[in-house]
Amino acid sequence: MTIDLNPLSEAVIKGNIQAATQETQKALDGGGDPQTILDQGLIAAMDIVGQRFAAGAMFVPQMLRSAKTMQACVALLKPAFQAGTVSSKGTVVMGTVKADLHDIGKNLVAMMLEGAGFTIIDMGVDVLPEAFVQTVSEKSPEILGMSALLSTTMPAMKATIDALKDAGLRDKVKVMIGGAPVTAKFAGEIGADRYAPDAGSAVAAAKELLQTS
């Protein structure tokens, strides 16, 4: 039996929590496979949200609403999964770098990555290079994501990458960076693996880094 997941995707894209949770419940009641609902209903919808955001066709409030809608639906799916059967696309450690208190952009990226099926460890703002290194060594994430909103705090990204090298961890984790003054060229110069200009592109970049879909 196939269940039509399009109405669910539509509801997530529109950020209609009520309709989306109803559709999720309907799909579950109709015997849908939770993993399929997650992948083809929710994550597929968030992919579209990310693409539209990157193009400018959707904006922050709408993207947040979609992410919240997705979270509500995931909460409904959780009991249906056997312990451990929800597959994570990978773990991402994230934070805003030392001496930078800008939170919002980093939070958006975290939400979008979560929506795409990644596990997020959010270290908050003003994160010292040593703290990043420690968390990377303890949690062995696939990706480290760093954000900086000021051209004066960008050098802390390089300091963190250098600290990873010193700790012998650099080849164990992919590094992604972003933030208003950050560029792809800067990412290349400091030895980061990827630059993402916005929260929508960050998802595509993370998937590319890990070669998952």
Binding site: F59, V60, L64, L101, I104
Partner: peptide, 16 residues
């Protein structure tokens, strides 16, 4: 503002 917890919410609300 960057350390006011309410700021992020107010900011997002005010974008529309």
């Amino acid at each position: 503002l960057s350390v006011q917890p309410e700021f992020e919410e107010a900011f997002v609300e005010s974008m529309d």
